[in-house]
């Protein structure tokens, strides 16, 4: 009919010639962007790899049974990590014993009993605020409240004080993961329980909680593995003293006003100017990372079993 480009006519647009697709340039820019973003991802992974390789090559030669079982020493060749290792285990016990009941209880309360109440909203905002507070601030809280105000009970700057401080630190994480796991349990189970005349608590205890436990455990183990790697708060609570003896696993032993743990020990050894201590710091890091690896693997195995069971 007429010479106008049929496509332009279809869109009702006049052909102005102002629009230049410049596809070649744009695709080239696309390609560059893609390469840069891959490079960014791999730079992070590469740093992880370099760090691990560096630590392993420094630390493995010094790693021996003697190193694992000896107390720290002024001489690097004789120094070991046994008291620090036991200190970390003791911290883990106290943290778990206090944080798990508190965190799971709070999670159950918020999710099953106080849902959508004003109180739950306030606590929720409070928890998300607490999660952003730097860990060293928790250390100062522990120093003031547990190590000073409650000194007659905790024994001062003791494993007790440090363990309770770490418990407060990971409490938000445990609460959130408990709530998430409870949320994932279908409501029909609650309704069935209550339709049979069970109280809310009976329904939760007998039917809901067992289904949520694998999820809660996964979250809790991850939180605990974060706790044992935390260094700043326990240094603030416990000071980085030279402690050559292993803690006694008793109430009295946990109240001893001097203790050490693996992160503190690593910090001490890195801070020394002598290179021999840097090498054993790397060995201690390997031990710490192994503990973390075991805990994380447990958490992942639990999660996978949980997911395949559903």
């Amino acid at each position: 009919m007429n010479p106008i480009d049929p496509q332009a006519q279809g869109l009702g647009l006049p052909e102005t010639g102002n629009f230049k697709p410049q596809l070649e340039r744009r695709y080239k820019f696309d390609q560059i962007f893609k390469i840069i973003s891959w490079a960014a991802t791999f730079s992070a992974i590469a740093v992880l790899a370099i760090l691990l390789i560096g630590v392993l090559s420094e630390g493995i030669p010094k790693l021996s049974l003697e190193f694992l079982t000896a107390p720290p020493s002024r001489k690097a060749e004789q120094a070991g990590i046994w008291p620090a290792f036991l200190g970390t285990i003791a911290l883990l016990l106290i943290t778990a014993a206090s944080a798990i009941p508190l965190g799971v209880g709070t999670g159950i309360f918020l999710q099953e009993f106080a849902q959508d109440s004003k109180l739950a909203k306030v606590i929720e905002i409070n928890i998300s605020n607490l999660a952003a507070v730097p860990s060293i601030i928790y250390g100062m809280l522990g120093l003031f409240v547990f190590a000073r105000l409650l000194e007659p009970m905790t024994g001062g700057r003791s494993i007790f004080s440090a363990g309770l401080t770490l418990a407060l630190l990971i409490l938000p994480v445990i609460i959130v993961s408990t709530r998430e796991s409870l949320k994932a349990v279908p409501d029909s189970i609650r309704m069935a329980g209550m339709a049979l005349g069970a109280t809310r608590w009976q329904t939760v205890r007998i039917h809901v909680l067992p289904l949520a436990i694998p999820g809660i455990l996964t979250g809790t183990i991850l939180a605990l593995s974060r706790a044992i790697g935390e260094t700043a708060p326990i240094i603030v609570v416990g000071a980085a003293a030279f402690v050559p003896f292993a803690p006694e696993f008793s109430v009295e032993g946990f109240r001893e006003p001097a203790f050490t743990a693996m992160p503190i020990q690593i910090f001490n050894w890195i801070s020394r100017p002598q290179e021999e201590f840097h090498a054993i710091a790397a060995s201690a890091i390997i031990v710490l990372l192994m503990v973390l690896l075991v805990m994380n693997t447990t958490a992942i195995v639990l999660r996978n079993r949980f997911q395949s069971n559903r």
Binding site: A44, I45, V47, L48, L51, V55, L222, S225, R226, G229, E230, T231, A232, P263, I266, F267, I270, I285, L288, L289, L292, N296
Partner: peptide
């Protein structure tokens, strides 16, 4: 990478 203790 996020789970590595900061002392490391």
């Amino acid at each position: 990478l996020a789970g590595i203790p900061t002392v490391v």
